[in-house]
Nucleic acid binder design. Structure first.
Lengths: 333, 333
DNA sequence: TTGTAAGCGTTATCAT
DNA sequence: ATGATAACGCTTACAA
């Protein structure tokens, strides 16, 4: 392995001059630069990033920790973060956490200075873990399960957007609206969206019915399909479904098709996330678009501010993104 | 920032002993270990990975470079690689390449020892870039555009699987089978799958018709939908469609629905990849399952062999994965 | 079982 | 414009 020393020797200069050439420092005479570059190519020199990181204390890379890489939602999120980071000359490295354990692990990884900062999309952690987020390195949390924590935070407009989504179903004539959500044990995505659902019903003077609230333990298409079939089989009376994710909603569309229920004629369905697939599903899926790109942009901005801050810690920001309701075939759009 | 030195001082031992504790070396007296651990928690010590990497010359992390993170196919692939690596106690860090330029960049990144090795899923590079793959660090290429290159290589069973897919359409009674593929400029995924398509037609004594070959410039659902609508509008006579990816095929299902063509009654459709969504699409999509997990496993195995090899370079392996045809509603299954 | 010394490859700082 | 020196924080090899 050839090092800066080897190049320096070959070019007849000091290692420092080679370093200056590598980093495009201005004070290098063109002829010197030439000689160094020539030596670098001749020796097939490659910089050792670990050494540079150690010396600089910076890596130029931010980490993005997501629960699952093979998911339309987190894929979309990652794409947004990468685009936003790229504009700011930062690389992004994605890690899959998959569990609360690993989410906590991811925290210490960045603390370890492998990355300049970390964007953590937390699904497994809850309010109880909030204190673990009090770290002394740049961290931005993307998600909904932790509020008032000691950390910068970009959240979805869960409550308002859900209210709007359910409001849309009501406008379209639904009166018995089911909701598919996760366990609601504490303040999390599902509970916020459930509250939005309840508010929308109340505003329209519709009686809430606990039988209409369906729980799922995962947010994939499989679970949505199963739930829909069960609801139909149980004879439950419903004319609309609001799902906490698009994957769930597409599963519901599939499940309803399996049992011969027509969408949107008999039942209208709306999801949340506006993943790429929803536009092309049959029927195409109405949904809430949470402005992923805006949220990604803000998360990266917050992180960069933290990375570049010197001096006293700033107050922690909590931002909530914007949203819009996208009307498609599944609600008769 | 607290270092090993600080911990050593606080625990009244040498830095080396702290290092031994961190790395679970056996020769540390329990009482000493206790004292060190206590000091570590008290001082909130976090190891500096950059320093460790530099000293060790290893990172314990492999890189995975994919063209696009927000795609069902690459998401599936990434999930497989992560699972395979995890079993071998390796971390995976994902990078989005997006272009041939970045694919070449990714090569030098790993060469730079940020990762112990790199798995490169190359879409933009072609045979002409093969020589660039002659690198002196562990590299495994996943893909189809480079053969006989100076590199370990795990490829899809493109030709055979395509022949089987088209054979399935023929069995189901299709006689005028369209194919959606990318530009076929050199040996790549599309051209291999096209050859499989042609072989299947020939075996069944069906006349090939150039009008049935449709080109797309990207492999997303949008392109599939557009193509399908155009084919239908142009009055082209076809009763089957073979698509080089599932995304494309789901787009075709959507496009055919748009113009009122019934699947599978009037036209049968089959894709390639078996992404999660195909099972739940309406109609569910018949497709080729290329044994992603097996390929991921082998790629990781090859990479580990390279990482751990000392001595003379081995001969380069070229593996081709297995496959199966998954029959679903879109072909009347 | 523990400690000492040297070095991993780079960059910051300060001279020249 | 270029170079000498001292870090950066850890581990390997060897000594005690």
């Amino acid at each position: 392995m050839t090092t800066i020393q080897d190049v320096a020797k070959a070019a007849g200069v000091s290692p420092m001059t080679v370093s200056n050439v590598i980093n495009n420092h201005p004070n290098v005479r063109p002829s010197t630069r030439e000689r160094v570059l020539e030596a670098m190519t001749r020796l097939d020199y490659r910089i050792n990033v670990a050494a540079r990181n150690l010396a600089k204390g910076r890596t130029g890379t931010i980490g993005l920790a997501v629960p699952e890489v093979n998911s339309p939602y987190y894929g979309r999120l990652a794409a947004g973060i990468i685009a936003a980071a790229e504009r700011r000359k930062l690389r992004v490295s994605i890690e899959q956490t998959a569990s609360r354990e690993n989410e906590l692990d991811a925290l210490s990884l960045s603390r370890n200075r492998l990355y300049d900062g970390l964007i953590l999309s937390a699904a497994g952690m809850g309010q109880a873990d909030a204190e673990r987020l009090r770290v002394d390195h740049p961290l931005v949390v993307l998600g909904d399960r932790i509020f008032g924590g000691p950390v910068d935070h970009v959240a979805m407009p869960n409550l308002e957007a859900s209210r709007a989504a359910v409001g849309h179903l009501i406008e379209r004539g639904c009166r018995r609206i089911a909701m598919l959500c996760g366990a609601v044990d504490e303040v999390d995505t599902s509970s916020l969206r459930l509250t939005g659902y309840q508010q929308a019903l109340r505003e329209a003077d519709l009686a809430p019915d606990p039988a209409l609230i369906q729980r799922v333990d995962r947010f994939g298409m499989r679970e949505g399909a199963r739930s829909a079939r069960e609801m139909a089989a149980s004879g439950l009376d419903f004319d609309g479904v609001f799902c906490v994710t698009d994957s769930l909603a597409m599963g519901v569309l599939r499940g309803l098709a399996d049992v011969g229920v027509r969408v949107p004629e008999q039942v209208k369905v709306i999801g949340f996330d506006n993943v790429t697939e929803s536009e092309f599903f049959i029927p195409s899926l109405s949904t809430v678009d949470p402005d992923h790109d805006g949220m990604a942009e803000r998360a990266v901005d917050l992180l960069i501010r933290l990375i570049e801050r010197t001096g006293p810690p700033a107050v922690h920001e909590e931002l909530v993104g914007g949203f819009s309701v996208v009307v498609r075939e599944s609600t008769g759009g």
